[in-house]
Design a protein around this nucleic acid. Structure first.
Length: 203
DNA sequence: ACCCAGGTGGCCC
DNA sequence: GGGCCACATGGG
């Protein structure tokens, strides 16, 4: 076992299966509603704590606006007001609308989208306004079950802590993790979740 | 009154 | 390819 596999085993031993906010994101398999929830939350969670994401998502739930179709049909102002607690709400409402419309127009559903190759999907997601490297990869990994290793601030902290690499470049770290781990979306989902859980754990 | 949280786009060099 | 700033809310 290399250091990456050992780290995963250690985190799994310490925390067990990812819990709380990760129940839906790490659930396998996911139904249509759960996949769409992950995509919506992937936008809402940009630079925001999970509690505020939940406040925003609960507002959407109350109005039954948790499908791409319903998001594409309500007014942008209404969408903005519902997701306000997640912060940066004007930008996020715009991004959500663009993304929902893109998926409806080009694929119809996430299940159909899932059939396309990872690299093609990634390129198309990154071309959308509001979708950067981390959001694109979180959609690929958690909503579309693609085996791509997600890099975020918590992953970088882990890399620094264990001196896994001096280079903190996104692509470099992604390739580094993938090179040392089996290509398995289940492993990547749980590993990333545990990295975040561990990163938040004060001690 | 600060500081922080699963980022991204725009602009600059 | 990186450095800096704006974007906004709710909790410690």
């Amino acid at each position: 076992m290399n250091i990456f596999e050992k780290l995963f085993q250690e985190l799994k031993r310490k925390y067990g299966k990812p819990k709380g906010q990760w129940q839906i994101w790490c659930k396998r398999p996911k139904n249509k509603r759960e996949r769409e929830e992950v995509v919506i939350e992937a936008i809402l969670t940009q630079r925001t704590n999970w509690r505020n994401v939940e406040l925003a998502f609960n507002n959407l739930k109350k109005e039954k606006i948790i499908s791409f179709k319903s998001i594409s049909q309500i007014s942008p102002k209404k969408l903005e007001s519902l997701i306000k607690p997640s912060g940066f709400y004007k930008a996020k409402a715009h991004y959500l609308l663009l993304l929902a419309n893109f998926i409806i127009k080009h694929y119809g559903s996430l299940e159909k989208m899932k059939n396309e190759k990872q690299q093609e999907l990634r390129k198309k997601l990154l071309a959308l306004k509001g979708i950067g490297l981390e959001t694109a990869d979180s959609i690929l990994l958690y909503a579309l079950d693609k085996p791509i290793f997600l890099i975020d601030e918590y992953t970088r902290k882990l890399v620094k802590k264990y001196r896994l690499s001096k280079n903190l470049n996104y692509q470099f770290l992604q390739e580094l993790f993938e090179k040392h781990l089996p290509k398995d979306f289940r492993l990547y989902q749980d590993f990333h979740a545990l990295i975040v859980i561990d990163g938040k754990n004060k001690k």
